[in-house]
């Protein structure tokens, strides 16, 4: 059994928060550059150029690329041959978030209770998803999930009869209704199958794939390609000001589902896609 001290996890989480919020990933930058070449609207091109300039400022000056530094979403893949020492895993993660948001001068955007709405003051707690996997490694993924795009996400329980066409209509309609709100060009994460709750988790996991990567399953990859084409025919464009590039990518993750069900969830991610992963 390999031992990992939770203090190391805490310090890793702190680093991830800051790194993700200051330095956008190369996959996203490549995708934005390609979007700039394909965009036909002059105003759309101007917007994408500003986003690339903004990313450069974040990197050079080590400042947050967006003021909404997000809800801290943590995905843990814990190897089953790992023994955690040094204290509570959840507390270590939340302490990492606390330090990252304080030391990185990130915005504190979490309220204690959805009704009273008093700010927790340190951006905790994180939403933590933990998977036990084979091996002796610990993989930590951080995503700073902005409120604007999360608010435009939706899920539905379709009938099997609605099928592929029903899925396409629901996803495209979700993006259409969202319009300029979620900061297009967006990344569209789709979860298909599982249960009501599991489809939404799949949608979030779909966002975390490298931007523009297709599903390994050919049927699903074709669905992704068709969805992207249909979404980019909507004309919403960068920031909703009109244009060809409404979405940078559509990424679908699937899971088996009940003979009676066709769960579909759409998790929208803004162009300010801030995620980083470290394997310990």
């Amino acid at each position: 059994m390999r031992q990992i001290n939770t203090e190391q996890i805490r310090d890793t989480v702190e680093k991830l928060c800051i790194d993700a919020n200051y330095n956008l990933g190369d996959d996203l930058i490549t995708s934005l550059r390609s979007a700039l070449e394909r965009e036909e609207s002059p105003l759309g091109k101007e917007v994408i150029t500003q986003l690339l300039d903004n990313a450069e400022i974040g990197r050079k000056e080590q400042v947050p690329v967006c003021q909404d530094t997000g809800f801290a979403i943590i995905f843990i893949e814990l190897g089953q041959e790992v023994v955690l020492t040094g204290g509570d895993l959840r507390e270590a993660i939340n302490e990492g978030i606390r330090r990252g948001y304080k030391n990185g001068l990130l915005r504190k955007s979490i309220v204690k209770n959805p009704i009273d709405r008093i700010n927790t003051g340190d951006n905790t707690p994180a939403v933590i998803h933990t998977d036990i996997v084979p091996g002796d490694k610990l993989k930590i993924t951080f995503d700073a999930k902005g409120g604007g795009c999360e608010n435009m996400s939706r899920s539905a329980m379709l009938t099997p009869a609605q099928g592929r066409e029903g899925v396409i209509n629901f996803v495209v309609d979700t993006v259409k209704s969202a319009g300029a709100n979620p900061c297009p060009p967006i990344i569209v994460g789709v979860g298909l199958g599982g249960t009501f709750d599991y489809s939404t988790l799949l949608a979030k996991k779909a966002i975390l794939r490298p931007v523009g990567s297709n599903n390994n399953n050919k049927t699903i990859a074709n669905l992704e390609i068709e969805l992207l084409e249909k979404i980019n025919r909507l004309g919403i464009g960068p920031q909703g000001l009109g244009g060809r590039i409404t979405a940078l990518a559509v990424q679908v993750e699937t899971f088996p589902c009940h003979i009676a069900s066709l769960p579909v969830a759409v998790n929208i991610e803004c162009h300010s896609h801030r995620t980083k992963t470290i394997v310990i």
Partner: peptide
């Protein structure tokens, strides 16, 4: 801000002479 406004806001803007501007969402450092 960014994103669309309700009918009520659009009506108020016409009636009382106001405009709605968009700034580029996510270009926060710039």
């Amino acid at each position: 801000g960014k994103g669309g406004r309700s009918k009520e806001v659009l009506e108020a803007m016409k009636r009382y002479k106001a405009v709605y501007f968009a700034a580029v969402g996510g270009a926060a450092a710039l």
